[in-house]
C-alpha cells in the first residue's frame, strides 16, 4: 500500500470522480475495520462505524491537504467515529460502571466468571478464538485514550509520529499513554489467562 496510489485516487475524487473512491475503500477497509473492531469490540458496530467514516471522508475529501499521509487522515476519522460511538454507548449504559477488576464479559456471555488460575491446563483447553476473545475483552477494559494508542501502535503498527498526527498528541503523550495501556493490558491478561503457557 503506497501513498502515491492513495494520492492518485484522492486527486480523482477531488475532481469529482466518485468511482475513484472505491480504490481507497478497497485499500483501507480491512485495516479500518480492525481498528474500529478493536476499539468497539463488536463486529457489526465496527462495520457501521467504518461506513460512517468512509462517507465522512468522502464528504471531506476536497478539504484533504497532502500535509500528511491520506491513511493517517483516514484513520483519524475512523478513530473519532469509534470514539463517538463508545461515548454514545457509555451514556446509554452509564449505570453500568466497569473497572479492570470487574469480571470480563464476552459478547456471547461465555465468560462470566474469573478463570481459575489453573496454568497450562486452562490455556490448553481454550481454543484460539476464545483466547483472542479474552484479549479483546481486556483491550476493551482499557481507558479509551489508552486503548486507541495501543490499538494503533501494537496492533496496527503505526509509528509514534503517525499516531501523534492522528490523535493530535505529542510523542511524549503517546508514549506515556501507550506504556500505561501495555501495563494495564498485561495485568488484565494475567488476571484472565493466568500464567502464560
Amino acid at each position: 500500500m503506497t501513498d502515491d496510489e492513495d494520492v492518485k485516487a484522492v486527486l480523482l475524487c477531488q475532481k469529482g470522480d466518485s468511482d475513484a473512491f472505491e480504490i481507497l475503500v478497497e485499500r483501507h477497509q480491512k485495516r479500518m475495520l480492525n481498528v474500529a473492531y478493536r476499539m468497539l469490540g463488536d463486529y457489526d458496530e465496527a462495520c457501521d462505524v467504518v461506513q460512517e467514516a468512509f462517507l465522512a471522508a468522502y464528504r471531506a475529501i476536497r478539504s484533504f491537504k497532502r500535509e500528511a499521509a491520506f491513511s493517517t487522515w483516514l484513520y483519524a476519522i475512523v478513530v473519532n467515529h469509534a470514539r463517538n460511538r463508545i461515548k454514545q454507548a457509555e451514556s446509554r449504559l452509564s449505570h453500568e460502571a466497569r473497572s479492570i477488576d470487574d469480571p470480563v464479559g464476552l459478547q456471547d456471555g461465555s465468560l462470566q466468571r474469573d478463570l481459575p488460575d489453573c496454568g497450562e491446563s486452562a490455556v490448553e483447553r481454550l481454543e484460539k478464538k476464545e483466547v483472542e476473545a479474552r484479549v479483546q475483552a481486556c483491550i476493551r477494559t482499557l481507558e479509551a485514550d489508552q486503548r486507541e494508542v495501543l490499538i494503533l501502535r501494537d496492533i496496527q503498527g503505526f509509528s509514534y509520529e503517525e499516531i501523534g498526527g492522528m490523535l493530535k498528541l505529542a510523542d511524549g503523550t503517546v508514549k506515556s499513554r501507550l506504556f500505561r495501556a501495555r501495563a494495564a493490558l498485561k495485568d488484565c491478561l494475567v488476571n484472565v489467562l493466568g500464567d502464560w503457557p
Partner: peptide
C-alpha cells in the same frame, strides 16, 4: 498476544 490477534476480514 495482541500482535497475534487475528485480523478480521471486512
Amino acid at each position: 498476544r495482541v500482535k497475534n490477534l487475528e485480523e478480521l476480514e471486512p
